[in-house]
Design a protein around this nucleic acid. Sequence first.
DNA 1: GTCAAACTAGACACCATTGTCTAAAACGTC
DNA 2: GACGTTTTAGACAATGGTGTCTAGTTTGAC
Lengths: 222, 222
Amino acid sequence: MGHTQRGQCAKRISILDAAAEVFCREGFSGASIDEIAVEACVSRQTIYNHYREKETLFTAVVEDVMDRANAMLFSILSTFPDKSDHLEDDLTAFAVRLTKNCLCNQDGKFLRKLVQSEGERYPHLFETWRQHGPGKIGTALGALFARLSHKGVLRIDDFDLAARQFLALVNADLQMITLFGGTPTDEELESAARNAVQTFIRAYAGPASETAPRTPALAVVG
Amino acid sequence: MGHTQRGQCAKRISILDAAAEVFCREGFSGASIDEIAVEACVSRQTIYNHYREKETLFTAVVEDVMDRANAMLFSILSTFPDKSDHLEDDLTAFAVRLTKNCLCNQDGKFLRKLVQSEGERYPHLFETWRQHGPGKIGTALGALFARLSHKGVLRIDDFDLAARQFLALVNADLQMITLFGGTPTDEELESAARNAVQTFIRAYAGPASETAPRTPALAVVG
DNA sequence: GTCAAACTAGACACCATTGTCTAAAACGTC
DNA sequence: GACGTTTTAGACAATGGTGTCTAGTTTGAC
């Protein structure tokens, strides 16, 4: 009995992957169990075996994707070097990793589409996404910027705001591509990240590095 | 005969409005003609009378919303003052108008959700949105920033990039709210706009790049 | 090989939805 | 008031999806 777990597990994964694909492509109501079964190379009954009904399957898929996305997110977050002597390059490379592996990959696309289209119908979905899923990417990034600000590398008042703006800037060039399902090329990711980081640093590095002391400049910052 | 146009027109509008509401809430496959008929206070046959089938209705709704959103967009764009002595305040007020009337209203929500969820299944929808609809908000804003840059008020290399970043920054604080269907309050709009504009100006008012010559414009902006 | 568990294929009832059709009613014009 | 058009309510067939059931097959442990 013990080893059948393997087979079961393989089926489960196969079903979850196929379901994620189909739900993402067709939305919840547009997706049919038969379609998922075919894509997963599994009989329909097997799906009803593991997940009582369509709704249960959908919830399981969302949890699965969120867990994976969450793990990937923190794995990426930890890759920012403790000390960086080329802030722009390090931030750019970091932004590329973030977009490539979290924001613009299949899981990111799934969550963006599904939270958007089904978030109102499943409020708990949105809540989970915000608290346990990639929704907290903002606060996590905020912690990173707090570190950088503490070291004097950046000059930031509101860390969470800076994090939101950083993400927004990185997405600025990618939205057109990701909005209708496309996947950005490496060049596009690189360019988007570079644009975003340059603007971000211009806004938050300020004259600290090269000009007079900061105190009277407060008027500029407002 | 001539005056029946009025009645017909009223029905059409009623149907389009109700359909937009339901399509937005339920998605294309989730929306049922009966539901739309009830919401429009119209019999189902009347809908099939005006629009041959569900698909036709959907297309008509999208065109209708896009036309309205487009008109509103250009109406708002023209409100930016020709000469502004308080750039931050003027940009902020402008951003508030833009979000309130274009990005975060019912039409904006509809387009965001529908282009996202049905854009892959209706490529022409996405194309129309990008070329004739609010998708060109970017280039329109780019023209505005080109003007500001020419006047020396801002220092911008790539106008379209600046426009994308401006929009992204404005959305940074609103995404969490709009993502699951909420409508931001006036205070939230105001705060989001202020945060965005301050960062935008810090990035684009100062010396363009590290080695660029400096102008006294910095003081004027603050 | 044996056995139990899991999987498959297909049939099935049930329900919601689309799109058509018809007869009656409402409306606006003359 | 008469007439043509539009709208309405409801019945209708056709379709497609959900979830159940059954009978037969595969799978893996012992």
